[in-house]
């Protein structure tokens, strides 16, 4: 009987400890889906489909400083043509 009380008491303490402590990192926040678009910070133009994704079609401003390869949805064809 005494034994069981001891076990129960220890388990309670462990549970309290688990519940009361702060865990590492920020609390998980579920971010909803979003849709937005980027306009050229240089000339204000929008990004249009045929013009490719890496540079602004109007003033040549660099949106992305890399070359796209064949990925999941993004493909080589999405690079802006020089």
């Amino acid at each position: 009987m005494e034994e069981q009380k001891h076990t129960h008491c220890l388990l309670e303490k462990l549970k309290q400890k688990a519940k009361e402590q702060k865990f590492y990192g920020n609390d998980y926040v579920e971010e909803p889906a979003k849709l937005n678009s980027r306009t050229c910070t240089n000339c204000g133009a929008g990004r249009a489909k045929e013009d490719g994704l890496t540079h602004c079609a109007y003033c040549g401003f660099e949106f992305l400083s890399i070359q796209l390869t064949d990925g999941i949805h993004l493909k080589k064809e999405d690079n802006s043509r020089p």
């Binding site: 889906a33 979003k34 929008g46 249009a48």
Partner: peptide, 30 residues
């Protein structure tokens, strides 16, 4: 802008009307 399927990575979706590339970012769970 119709989301045509479940995307699990951020991607660019084209507006069928004005052709603008919109950036679609899925929710954390997706």
């Amino acid at each position: 802008v119709h989301i045509d399927k479940i995307y699990s990575t951020t991607t660019y979706l084209t507006c069928s009307f004005c052709n603008t590339k919109n950036t679609f970012e899925p929710s954390s769970q997706t």
